[in-house]
Design a protein around this nucleic acid. Structure first.
Length: 827
RNA sequence: GCCCUGGUGGCGGAAUCGGUAGACGCGUCGGACUUAAAAUCCGGUUGGAGUUAAAUCCAGUGCCAGUUCAAGUCUGGCCCAGGGCACCA
């Protein structure tokens, strides 16, 4: 074994050997229980960043740990390779998105291999390749057959910068998720996936995911936005029309003093009198011009105009006016709101501004309010509400809705905020939506035996204002699969999130050319046992994937309800307290770290300083520290190469004659126990690495006190070093392999079993008894752990310290915690 | 406004059940080795009081109460930071 540690040399060597020997291939047939460890696959943007390094290292260590613990592990990797950056790069450089993507994949693959990740590359999936997107298209057709994919004209989010529509989930604070451009509303005919059919079960099944963090589950629950209430219908006085409203507060129905419809409400023109038309039209035109951000700003002063017509409250017979105001949203509920200014803060503000009346119908019986200064929105008892007076408002919600049901003017209603998923994109670099339009036959799905619908090559990427794909004559013009007549192909492609909604299924059967995956294989490997990725996908990818899994289950393609059993959302990688980004110029290039320190140092460091779920602050000194530690480990092994034998005798409790050797044996067992528990318990890799250091420090300390080693010493040292190598092998994958072979081992360290500990040895030989007086530590006594509670008590009371401090005081009582502590309570 | 997460030394962070607060590392200070430096090794490092040095004592886990023999940990009420949702009726 060489004296000095040369990571660059040994890392390349082992990467090559592992690849040749297929060390990390996964077999479909194995007696071992399965374990599926998965990182969110990357977009091939060009180069890995530290966020990738962190993500993949975490998953890799998990995969290796599970493999050593007897699992048949699936740990695959692939590329989320459709999407706009490739197309933008193509437009800028006159290249083809495919070439740009391929080059990036090749470079990033090389980087992943340099990191020493244990992927089974035979299962690689690349979403932009026809052998993958054929099945994305096939799945789209299955959704279409089930009525879960449909086309409709709707107000949609449009990003001018990206030249395409976006899903609701891709609009962040009124801006495009990708380019930050302000999103506009457009009326367009677009393809949607009917995720709303699954709103209830997507919400309910969050309870089946104890392995997900509450933060992600709450974000999804908020996004789905379930509320329970009622639809109430109000007759219009001047017209033969009704206005239905959705409300969660039917208990306040007697307090309605006006009603608001959204400026885009479908019957608004009918509901406007000729005298009010001019003002209403102007208001609506103005609302149209406003951006979503302006319109949805909560601190904006509410505005509106009266329509001139009125409704009748069926509960009171009272007549009240209709208004239009942009605080009513056309896309939620019915697009109309019953206004109860006394019990809703928004209605209160609006009523105040326009001097609309206010009627109190709910009161806190202890402390009634007249609601002159603020709306009363807390629970209470009904007043001014006819037969419901005196009823608690929660009961009244049911009773009043029931009256509306009985009277034929209302019903109970559960409402969700979740909207259907808009999946068409007016871009080239995506999976073409497999549909053609025929003048005679209408929308026709492409027959399955004609899949894939390939992306055309004869496109002009320099076009502005439309999708490049529309410039391909060979693509656009086609024949109708139904009548054989001339037809036009759909030129929209699918949102990349469609491709990524099922890739984790494909890994189970990546080479299948008859099906997206075989049912037995997908059922064997899925659900994913541990999914690791960034929090930014809390709603987008993770919600879409859950929807896909449930839809595919209902089609009989698979037999499980949820795709990801456990989810670890890793924190961001920061530098100097802020997120690494090119614009801030605080990025660290993984290549430089590999070159200067090696991949093992990078892996060790990225796991060392913070628990995986928390943000990680990159520091150059920290990297240096990890590199030094690996050198220290290397020296420990290389300087002892002659003293270490892989054929050491197994050491049991009491088998060692020397006290210091027995102590070291205990330290080793404690390390095995501690490290195993830290990984098993939420993957606390930062403390795992502390324990590596403690073990190494302990071995050095032990050795520094021994000028000469006899047979017993050599035996315990061998056990110590072999245990250390095994424990470190999931993290320092190259160094441990090199050391393992230098010590004369035959097979790979990555095929050995995880070490086991003996409970009797995983603790110190004696205990430190803590002696407290009134709960404060006053003394520490080394004691035999076999001592009884009475003996411990006696020991504590006999301590000089205690005698001194209790002198002249009364001992009220004494609490003994076995093997740990004695607390003496004195007055 | 609602929801989630977090708040512990100069810094990152540790502390299964309520039972030694600050593991391990970074930084820093001192020492050894060296002609010197690097590398390496050894030691100190929460604050304050105290002492030639020690011993020792006091305070301390965002704030205020509470429960308990004992609270970083449990309960109630706040404050702050990060993230999510938001005129959703």
């Amino acid at each position: 074994m060489k004296d000095a540690y040369f990571p660059q040399e040994i890392e390349k060597k082992w990467q090559k050997i592992w690849e040749e020997k297929g060390t990390f291939k996964t077999s479909d047939s194995s007696d071992k229980p399965k374990y599926y460890a998965l990182s969110m696959f990357p977009y091939p943007s060009g180069k890995l960043h530290m966020g990738h390094v962190r993500n993949y290292t975490i998953t890799d260590v998990i995969a290796r740990f599970k493999k050593m613990n007897g699992f048949n592990v699936l740990h695959p990797m692939g590329w989320d390779s459709f999407g706009l950056p490739a197309e933008n790069a193509a437009m800028k450089h006159g290249a083809n998105p495919e070439n740009w993507t391929d080059e990036n994949i090749a470079y990033m693959t090389k980087q992943l291999k340099m990191l020493g990740l244990s992927y089974d590359w035979d299962r690689e999936v690349t979403t932009c390749k026809p052998d993958y997107y054929k099945w994305t298209q096939w799945l789209f057709l299955q959704l279409y057959k089930k009525g879960l994919a449909y086309k409709k004209e709707a107000a949609v989010n449009w990003c001018e910068e990206c030249g395409t529509v976006l899903a609701n989930e891709q609009v962040i604070d009124g801006k495009c998720w990708r380019c930050d451009h302000i999103v506009e509303k457009k009326y367009l005919s677009q393809w949607f996936l009917k995720i709303t059919d699954y709103a209830e079960v997507l919400l309910e099944d969050l309870d089946k995911l104890p392995g997900w963090g509450d933060n992600v589950k709450t974000m999804q629950a908020n996004w789905i936005g379930k509320s329970q209430g009622a639809i109430l219908r109000f007759k219009v006085v001047e017209k033969d029309l009704e206005v239905p409203v959705y409300t969660t507060r039917p208990d306040t129905v007697h307090g309605i003093t006006y009603l608001v419809v959204a400026p885009e409400y479908k019957d608004i023109e009918e509901l406007t009198t000729p005298e009010n038309k001019e003002a209403v039209d102007a208001y609506r035109a103005n609302a149209r011009k406003m951006t979503e951000i302006e319109r949805l700003s909560t601190d904006r002063v509410k505005t509106g105009v009266p329509l001139g017509t009125h409704c009748i409250n069926p509960f009171t017979g009272e007549k009240f006016p209709l208004w239009t105001a942009d605080y009513a949203l056309v896309e939620y509920g019915t697009g109309a709101v019953m206004a109860v200014p006394a019990h809703d803060t928004r209605d209160f503000d609006f009523a105040k501004k326009y001097n609309l009346p206010l009627k109190v119908v709910i009161q806190d019986s202890q402390n009634p309010s007249d609601c002159k200064d603020a709306a009363y929105t807390e629970p209470g008892v009904l007043v001014n509400s006819n037969e419901f007076n005196g009823m608690g408002n929660e009961d009244a919600k049911k009773a009043i809705t029931q009256k509306a049901v009985d009277g034929g003017f209302g019903k109970f209603k559960t409402q969700y905020r979740l909207r259907d998923w808009l999946v068409s994109r007016q871009r080239y670099w995506g999976a073409p939506i497999p549909v053609v339009y025929c003048e005679k036959c209408g929308i026709q799905p492409v027959p399955e035996d004609q899949l894939p619908v390939l992306l055309p090559k004869d496109v002009d990427f320099s076009v502005v204002g439309k999708s490049p794909i529309t410039t391909s004559k060979t693509f656009v013009n086609t024949t109708c699969p139904c009548c054989g007549g001339p037809a036009r192909r759909e030129t929209d492609t699918m949102d990349t999130f469609v491709c990524s909604s099922w890739y984790y299924l494909r890994y189970s059967d990546a080479k299948n050319d008859k099906m997206p995956f075989a049912k037995d294989k997908v059922n064997k490997w899925l659900p994913v046992d541990q999914y690791v990725g960034g929090i930014e996908h809390a709603i987008l990818h993770l919600l879409y994937s859950r929807f896909f899994t449930k839809a595919l289950r209902d089609m009989g393609l698979l037999d499980f309800d949820e795709p990801f059993k456990n989810l670890l959302t890793q924190g961001m990688v920061l530098k100097d307290g802020s997120k690494m980004s090119k614009s801030k110029g605080n990025t660290v290039d993984p290549d430089e770290i590999f070159e200067n320190y090696g991949a093992d140092t990078a892996r060790l460091f990225i796991l060392s300083d913070s628990p995986p779920a928390r943000d990680f602050d990159w520091s150059d000194a920290g990297v240096e520290g990890c590199y030094k530690f690996l050198n220290r480990v290397w020296r420990l092994i290389s300087s002892n190469a002659d003293n270490i034998s892989l054929n050491y005798t197994e050491l049991k409790a009491g088998s060692l004659k020397k006290k210091d050797n027995d102590d070291l044996l205990r330290v080793i067992h404690m390390a095995i126990k501690g490290i195993t528990n830290d990984i098993s318990n939420d993957f606390q890799f930062n403390t795992v690495i502390s324990k590596y250091r403690e073990l190494v420090n302990a071995i050095y300390d032990w050795q520094n006190k021994k000028p000469e080693l006899d047979d017993e010493d050599k035996n315990i040292l061998s056990f110590a070093i072999v245990s250390l190598i095994k424990l470190m092998s999931p993290v320092a994958v190259h160094l441990t392999e090199e050391a393992w072979h230098d010590l004369g081992a035959e097979g790979s360290i990555h095929d050995v079993e995880w070490p086991k500990w003996d409970e009797n040895l995983a603790k110190a030989s004696s205990i430190t008894l803590i002696v407290q007086i009134n709960g404060k530590v006053k003394d520490k006594i080394e004691a035999d752990e076999a001592l009884s509670q009475d003996e411990l008590k006696a020991l504590a009371l006999n301590s000089e310290k205690v005698k001194e401090l209790t002198q002249g005081k009364t001992i009220v009582k004494t609490i003994v915690v076995p093997k740990k502590l004695v607390n003496i309570v004195v007055k």
